[in-house]
Computed example of a mutant assay.
Amino acid sequence: MKFRAKMIDLGCLNHFTRVVNTIAKLTKSCVLRLTPDNLYFVLSGKVANGGVSMWCELLQVNFFDEYQMEGLSPEANEICLEVAPENISRALKTAQNAKAVKVKLTKKHCPCLTLSAELPSLSSISRVVTHDIPVEVIPRRLWHEFKEPTVPDFDVSIYLPPLKTMKNVVDRMKNLSNILVLEANLGGEMNLKIETDLVSVTTHFKDLGNPPWGDSASQSRSQSWDPEAMAHARVDVRKLQQFLIGQQINPSKAMCNIVHNRIVHLILLQEDMSLQYFIPAVA
Results as ranks from 00 to 15, higher is better:
1 M>H: 03
9 D>F: 10
10 L>P: 02
34 L>T: 05
38 N>A: 11
47 V>E: 13
51 G>A: 13
53 S>D: 06
57 E>R: 08
65 D>S: 15
68 Q>W: 13
74 P>Q: 12
75 E>W: 07
79 I>C: 09
80 C>R: 09
81 L>W: 00
86 E>Q: 15
89 S>F: 09
92 L>E: 02
98 A>M: 05
102 K>A: 14
107 K>I: 13
110 C>W: 03
112 C>A: 07
124 S>V: 13
124 S>Q: 13
126 S>W: 05
131 H>Q: 06
132 D>S: 14
134 P>V: 04
144 H>W: 03
144 H>I: 09
149 P>V: 00
149 P>I: 02
149 P>T: 00
149 P>C: 01
150 T>M: 10
159 Y>S: 10
162 P>A: 11
162 P>V: 13
166 M>W: 01
171 D>E: 02
176 L>M: 14
178 N>S: 15
184 A>P: 03
187 G>S: 05
189 E>H: 05
190 M>I: 05
191 N>T: 09
193 K>Y: 00
200 S>M: 12
200 S>H: 06
208 L>R: 11
213 W>A: 12
216 S>G: 15
217 A>W: 13
222 S>Q: 07
224 S>D: 07
224 S>I: 09
228 E>Q: 13
234 R>P: 02
234 R>C: 01
239 K>G: 03
240 L>A: 04
248 Q>F: 14
250 N>E: 07
255 M>A: 08
255 M>F: 10
256 C>Y: 06
261 N>G: 09
275 L>K: 01
277 Y>F: 14
279 I>V: 06
281 A>H: 02
